[in-house]
């Protein structure tokens, strides 16, 4: 048996233990990413193998928290994939404007960059006071960070460029204040965002959403977990609601795919059909 094969066995055993002790379920996470992330964590942990670390991880919550961070922290950018945000602005917002109030679920919001991007977009489209974004992530520490809305100043150049390509109608610098080497997003953006902890692997659905944003989150899940999550999204969306996936994800060959229609090919923005006549 190769050492890589042994590592795979150790990962399976550890993930089973983590689920039983802490209730976090990574058993259906896709292996390649999980293996890379766990190997990274291990190399900074002082343990030689995951088996040696396991005894401590299952007993020491603080140590487990460092592992949790290593497994779950996703990175994003404001207006990541500008073309996507442009499509939302041009092709989805006109529908949203017909609703008196818009409820958005941003699943797997990580440190909040895309939730704030959506808030900026909707404010610029004149929807102030008419929307609420429920931004959730499995990682509570990351949720706290997202709520703060503070990002490294050096990111702003990239965010600004994304914003411009995404069809931003204002000046991006109006949305943050620079302090030393950080940029603090203007608190107004937070008014319509509720940050909360939620696990797509174990928690239940959210009611009556008009739009669900879950981009580059399910790429870390195996098929079975992906199907579970898509089922959650299907039952959380109102008829006519929108489901937005990452650039390289699609609903093709998924069990809910016949409930949805892509608004335009290759946008990865799907609209839930109204019930059959």
């Amino acid at each position: 048996m190769t050492s890589d094969e042994l590592t795979d066995i150790e990962i399976k055993l550890l993930m089973e233990g983590v689920f039983q002790v802490y209730g976090h379920d990574f058993r259906d996470y896709s292996e390649a990413s999980l293996r890379r992330r766990l190997t990274n964590w291990l190399s900074g942990s002082g343990f030689a193998t995951l088996s040696l670390a396991q005894s401590h991880l299952l007993r020491d919550r603080a140590l487990f928290d460092t592992l949790l961070r290593g497994i779950t922290v996703n990175v994003s950018e404001m207006f990541r994939d500008p073309a996507f945000f442009k499509a939302i602005r041009e092709q989805v917002v006109p529908y949203l404007k017909t609703y008196p109030f818009i409820k958005i679920w941003h699943a797997g919001c990580a440190s909040g960059e895309e939730a704030y991007s959506m808030a900026i977009l909707l404010l610029e489209e004149g929807l102030r006071g008419r929307f609420r974004i429920y931004a959730t992530d499995i990682n509570e520490e990351v949720i706290r960070k997202a709520h703060e809305g503070i990002y490294p100043l050096q990111e702003m150049q990239n965010f600004t460029r994304n914003y411009q390509h995404a069809g931003g109608t204002g000046s991006f610098s109006d949305y943050y204040t620079a302090r030393y080497d950080h940029a603090i997003l203007t608190p107004m953006l937070r008014e319509n965002i509720v940050f909360a902890a939620h696990s797509l692997a174990v928690d239940a659905d959210f009611g009556e959403m008009n739009l669900i944003l879950c981009r580059n989150v399910m790429i870390y899940f195996k098929k079975q977990l992906k199907e579970r999550v898509l089922g959650l999204f299907d039952s959380s969306l109102s008829p006519g609601g929108f489901l937005c996936l990452g650039t390289k994800e699609s609903l093709d060959h998924r069990h809910i795919s016949n409930h949805f229609e892509e608004i335009k090919p290759r946008t990865q923005i799907y609209r839930k059909r109204y019930a059959k006549k």
């Binding site: 896709s30 390649a32 890379r36 994003s76 790429i219």
Partner: peptide, 10 residues
């Protein structure tokens, strides 16, 4: 394993 590709934004 199993011969599929996977993507990540790590």
């Amino acid at each position: 394993r199993g011969g599929t590709l996977a993507l990540s934004i790590d």
